[in-house]
Design a protein around this nucleic acid. Structure first.
Lengths: 333, 333
DNA sequence: TCTATATTGGAAAGCGCTTTCCATACACAT
DNA sequence: ATGTGTATGGAAAGCGCTTTCCAATATAGA
């Protein structure tokens, strides 16, 4: 990657390195216009491209923001990523992406790679776990100590910088609404309990059920993806011995889709034989049939808020982003 | 971002900078084990994190690979991104992501930002246009001249490094198969003609139709997304004055979904009144109803191949990745 | 024992920038 | 003519690392 350097440009323009730097890469001092013009012409002619690494080293700021997601191909995360990307552009920052899916240690690896690359901030999307990996925590603590900003999406408002998401409230609101529509029997398709997002939503479900004087007919734990929903729904159906009209509360849309598919594979149709709800209101699934009853979350906005929080020190921590209950055909409509 | 530096570690361990570097960050020379141990202990104790920027500057290689997509929230691109991410991890590379959606110049901006960050390679996913932006071309040319590798996904096998995708062949195979199933009337929901991917697929459709002695009943141009499909289907339906049993060939799955929604909004049901096909076989849409007749593309694999091509100089350019026709309910099943 | 040859740690020169500090030049007031 | 204050370009130090080159020591050969 040998390329035209600033000193090459300076020489070509017959000025010093310092002057060239001041002209091309912004500074409080602005050289005289005729000189500046000469430098710009030289840069253009030689095809100068500033070396961001060298700038980062000299300025000790990289203009990079790291984004950690579980699975970038999951529409939940990719929507968030879009928001982050969008906001980052406004700050003229580049996004370093890590999709940590398979391995347990990948999250830690990603954070330490980001620390190594001296990203100005790190955004953790929904990856915060209930029992935190101590290595990860230490890595993050050190990162913050060195001036890096860490923002989580969906953390509790107390724990450092976070874009709080009304997971519990949204889940509760959904149940309350369904109850008001006359539904009485519920089962919960819970994600892995160590995932905060999943846990908060389950908490919302159960507390609202309790408030309505109800108890979940079943709580099935499973993976946080389509296959998890598929399995969970089938196991749940078995556990309920084919009881009709039960509403399966999945902790996200992708699981809900899986659940509907799992039921269909058993010859159970939604919403005729069973009801299913999701959470997130993934755009790609808007046209799904039967249309999904869910809790709408402005995912892209979550990403944007996270990026704002990460990149703008003056940004106040936002109020919890509320979810909006959306009743569609898969339950209650 | 003041942090522990290598020279701090060296001092703490009582060795020179050179030795510390050799121990911690790999080199052809391996210092004696007792010394190495001392250095490692010092690094651990102080919490040393190597500065990737400084390393990049000294080594003139950043360990970064840039990925340019149109819209990271589009499942087509996010699946590819997942593949790229996955492969990059094997090479211990980090992925710099740019989602260029709205503005025209964003693609150019992204490439020049990547050039500035001295990414070792740039992967352009489906962004190659028929009438190339001369600025972009120049930027890419310069980048390559400086030793950067550029890989496109779905380019023609001639044009530089590319992971060729059998867009035309897949499209043709789909039509041929549908014809063999007895379908005779087709309309094409084409994407924007300047997009190579869209154009190649349309070409495949028309050539197969021609080979079967047929002509498209309509060709409707529109955006490459859900809304584009929605509009296109409605306009198409109008143009065909409600003719029944026509098969609408959308150039991708997301448009197909939009098309089905558009038709449904007109009270037209698929596959009873009209047929619709997609392209890509997006995983998130596998459970869609009616299930989508489409051409399966191993999207994640495309991303992986692209990353291999970008990061491994010995990697031979792969053969075109073929699409596999999948007949489901939305047409022909 | 003495020279020829590896082996090993360290000093120092960059990598491409930013930024502080200095020297010069110029404007103006005295 | 002298002094003061203010622009402005350039020299050079330094950001944190890698790597070449050197010197010193250890090993082998005769």
């Amino acid at each position: 990657m040998a390329a035209v350097t600033l000193s090459g440009v300076a020489r070509h323009a017959g000025v010093s390195l310092a002057t060239a730097s001041r002209v091309l890469n912004g500074s409080s001092r602005r050289p005289a216009e005729d000189i500046a013009e000469r430098v710009r012409a030289a840069a253009l002619e030689l095809g100068y491209v500033p070396n961001a690494q060298a700038q980062a080293l000299a300025r000790s700021s990289t203009g990079l923001v790291g984004l950690v997601v579980h699975d970038i191909s999951d529409p939940y995360f990719s929507s968030i990523a879009r928001g982050v990307q969008h906001a980052a552009r406004n700050y003229r920052r580049q996004v370093l992406l890590a999709s940590t899916d398979p391995s347990e240690s990948a999250e830690h690896d990603a954070v330490s790679a980001f620390a190594s690359h001296r990203t100005d901030a790190i955004i953790l999307a929904g990856s915060r776990r209930a029992k935190p990996d101590p290595d990860l925590e230490q890595e993050l603590a050190r990162y913050q100590q060195n001036g890096g900003r860490v923002v989580t999406i969906g953390g509790s408002p107390g724990s450092g910088l976070t874009v709080p998401v009304g997971n519990a409230d949204g889940a509760a609101a959904l149940v309350t609404r369904l109850v008001s529509l006359g539904i009485r029997r519920f089962a919960i398709l819970a994600g892995p309990p160590e995932l905060n997002t999943a846990r908060d939503r389950v908490k919302g479900f159960t507390s609202a059920l309790e408030a309505a004087g109800l108890e979940p007919a079943a709580v099935v734990v499973s993976a946080f993806n389509r296959e998890g929903g598929f399995d969970a729904a089938q196991r749940c159906w078995e556990e309920l011995q084919g009881e009709h009209g039960v509403c399966l509360l999945a902790v996200n849309d992708v699981m809900a889709i899986g659940a509907i598919a799992g039921l269909r594979a058993l010859g159970v149709s939604v919403p005729a034989d069973a009801l299913v709800t999701g959470f997130d209101d993934i755009p790609t699934l808007r046209d799904y049939f039967p249309s999904l009853t869910t809790v709408h979350l402005p995912l892209e906005q979550l990403g944007e808020e996270a990026a704002n929080l990460a990149l703008n020190p003056d940004q106040a921590q936002p109020d919890p982003i509320p979810g909006e209950v959306i009743i569609r055909e898969s339950a209650g409509a």
